[in-house]
């Protein structure tokens, strides 16, 4: 190594550091990817929110595509995405399954009464029993589960038009094509 090249090393290291930081600036460090992607949904059984006699379980997530939406009445941004979910509930390619997380049944039902119910069914999980197995760490989160009950994607944060059109809709279409 020639002598003058040696003195370039600090600059080169710094350059690499800058590239790393530029990449870092574009990422959100508070988002944690789920290790459950590509795995079957964890076995569970929960009482249905609106109809406590019934239960919701992993079997209900097989046979068709599901969006499993983690929500709670105390969660501000869940209310933000509620309208988007209402719109999506009219589509027939998939069902929306709610996971009512760390919530109070009365409060949750009040929200559904006031703003409408986009969910085909709703697991009631006040103590984070099932949420823990799904690796839920906040609300809202949305899992995309395919026809075989395998988790294919996890979205953290509220669903809006952009997220739906750019990420979720193409994924649902792809899953549908796989299934057909």
């Amino acid at each position: 190594m020639s002598k003058s090249v040696r003195f370039l090393i600090p600059l080169i290291i710094f350059g690499a550091l800058v590239i790393l930081l530029v990449i870092g600036l574009g990422k959100d460090p508070s988002k944690v990817p789920s290790p459950l992607i590509g795995k079957s949904v964890p076995a569970f059984s929960l009482p249905e929110l609106t109809n406590p006699g019934r239960s919701v379980g992993d079997e209900d997530l097989k046979g068709q595509i599901s969006l499993v939406n983690v929500w709670a009445s105390w969660c501000v941004s869940c209310r933000q995405e509620h309208q988007a979910l209402m719109a999506l509930s009219k589509e027939t390619d998939f069902q929306i399954v709610g996971l009512n997380w760390k919530d109070d049944a009365q409060d949750a039902l009040a929200v559904l009464r006031m703003s409408g119910n986009p969910y085909a069914m709703n697991g009631y999980d006040p103590d984070n029993k099932v949420g823990l197995h799904w690796g839920v760490y906040g609300a809202p989160e949305t899992f995309v589960v395919d026809q075989h009950g395998v988790i294919r994607y996890k979205h953290i944060g509220p669903i809006d038009r952009k997220i739906w059109e750019e990420t979720l809709q193409p994924l649902v279409a792809q899953l549908k094509a796989e299934g057909a």
Partner: peptide, 13 residues
């Protein structure tokens, strides 16, 4: 922190 940004999205009780 950016938590504020994140918290707008994510509640955790």
């Amino acid at each position: 922190s950016l938590a504020l940004g994140a918290l707008l999205l994510i509640g955790s009780g």
